[in-house]
Design a binder for these strands. Structure first.
Length: 375
RNA sequence: GGUGGGGUGGCCGAGUGGCUAAUGGCAGCAGACUGUAAAUCUGCCGGGCUCUGCCCUACGUAGGUUCGAAUCCUACCCCCACCA
């Protein structure tokens, strides 16, 4: 269980197979985000047909509602949500970042003011582990302290070191709770945009191992893309190659390819579904705003090169109509497309890595994608 | 026929002498979104130009008062309500 087999490389790009209690994940792979135990707007069958191998859930959100005890009473997150395959739960660490203003960070843990009812809730490294164990995903994430990209060295250092101290506590608590065959814990590298801090974060993390996977966090939080690329390039040669590397919160289609080219195996991102709900679709030709007046009479699919349920059946004109009429089907159809688009990108990357043609394919793909200047 | 109310930018609807090219909302147009406080948010939205400004045209129609009118006066047209 929790075995990762590296099957091929092409430069820094890797293809592998990750075996988890609930199934196998072939990498590189995009993991759809299902914060509340549902990939927003989609039926699990649709997520499955889009080719998703693993989906996320969120500790913070499920703790607030319905409460992990409810999920556990109803059989755990797999049974509760009827998702039979692999799952990963985020620790609530990202909410330390995204709910800035609604929380206070202290060494013991983080006090949140619930965004639902305003009540105070505390999450500690230990409670995050307890919640995630109750939820029962295959992979639990360490509770980390994410800082904004603009953070200076001192603040990035503080977040990184706290993340390490919390990692020790996460590991200790997780070891008491989790059966080794049921759930594994992955650590998260922090350190902002500072190479030095990233290295120290990695060293500290490895010293607390061994691990079955390692995540890189604190990126795509406002820094320019070249900076994210640089951080990944600095980490690539020093990350252990025997375990999967998970770049948290990324990304857009081009970010996936740029990440894969720098050795990343796993991605997750809300943009596919959020942008889908907002009417923004990724295509092989760049970005398309489905509400554009120019699409009114189009009988073409969203992306002629796409094999998703939306593209094989519906026209751009119809999708635009659904958005203009504020019909919920529109939000769902574009979400389905975007999810499939990223998953397929992972599949294609995997194929070309195994064939040894990834670099060439990726370069051509990005060139075509950017040609229309993001449309 | 009488009495009262009303006619404002694509629509609804504020404004009742200068700060009004005219508040709001809707519709429309464009953009943003990266481990989900988001089916959300932002900008534009009479026309033209040599475009941090200038010039046209605009508040039912036609006149008038005034330095100045969507706002006041007169006539007419149309709509609504009630009465005959």
């Amino acid at each position: 269980m929790f075995e990762f087999k590296l099957e091929g490389t092409n430069g820094l790009a890797r293809a592998g197979t990750l075996t988890l209690p609930h199934g196998v994940v072939r990498t590189p792979a995009f993991m759809p985000v299902g914060t509340h135990g549902t990939v927003r707007g989609l039926h699990p069958a649709e997520v499955e047909r889009a080719g998703a191998q693993i989906v996320l859930g969120n500790t913070y959100h499920l703790h607030l509602r319905p409460g992990e005890e409810v999920v556990r009473a109803l059989g755990g997150l797999h049974q509760f949500s009827t998702w039979p395959g692999p799952m990963l739960t985020d620790s609530g660490g990202f909410q330390v970042f995204s709910l800035e203003g609604l929380r206070t960070v202290e060494e013991e843990g983080v006090e949140f003011q619930s965004h639902i009812d305003g009540g105070l809730r505390t999450i500690t490294p230990e409670s995050s582990m307890e919640i995630q164990w109750a939820l029962g995903a295959d992979i639990a994430m360490a509770f980390d302290h994410v800082v904004p990209a603009k953070s200076d060295f001192a603040h990035a250092e503080e977040g990184m070191e706290r993340t390490l101290r919390w990692l020790s506590r996460c590991r200790a608590r997780h070891a008491q709770l989790a059966g080794e065959a049921e759930q594994t814990l992955w650590p998260i590298i922090q350190g902002g945009t500072h190479a030095d801090l990233r290295m120290r974060s990695l060293e500290g993390t490895l010293a607390r191992g061994p691990w079955t996977g390692i995540a890189v966090g604190g990126l795509s939080v406002g820094e320019p893309k070249p900076v994210m690329h640089r951080v990944l390039e600095e980490l690539a040669p020093v990350l252990p190659s025997a375990v999967p590397r998970y770049l948290m919160g990324v990304g857009f289609p081009d970010d996936l390819l740029e990440g894969i080219a720098r050795g990343v195996d796993l991605f997750d991102c809300v943009a596919a579904t959020r942008n889908g709900r907002h009417g923004s679709a990724w295509t092989s030709q760049g970005k398309v705003n489905i509400r554009s007046a120019g699409l009114r009479l189009s009988d073409q699919p969203l992306d002629p090169a796409c094999d998703c349920e939306t593209c094989i059946r519906f026209s751009r004109g119809y999708l635009r109509h659904l958005f203009m009429a504020e019909e919920m089907l529109g939000l769902r159809l574009v979400s389905i497309h975007n999810i499939r688009f990223l998953i397929r990108l992972g599949e294609q990357a995997r194929e070309t890595i195994l064939k040894g043609t990834f670099d060439r394919w990726s370069r051509d793909w990005l060139e075509r994608y950017h040609r229309r200047g993001d449309l």
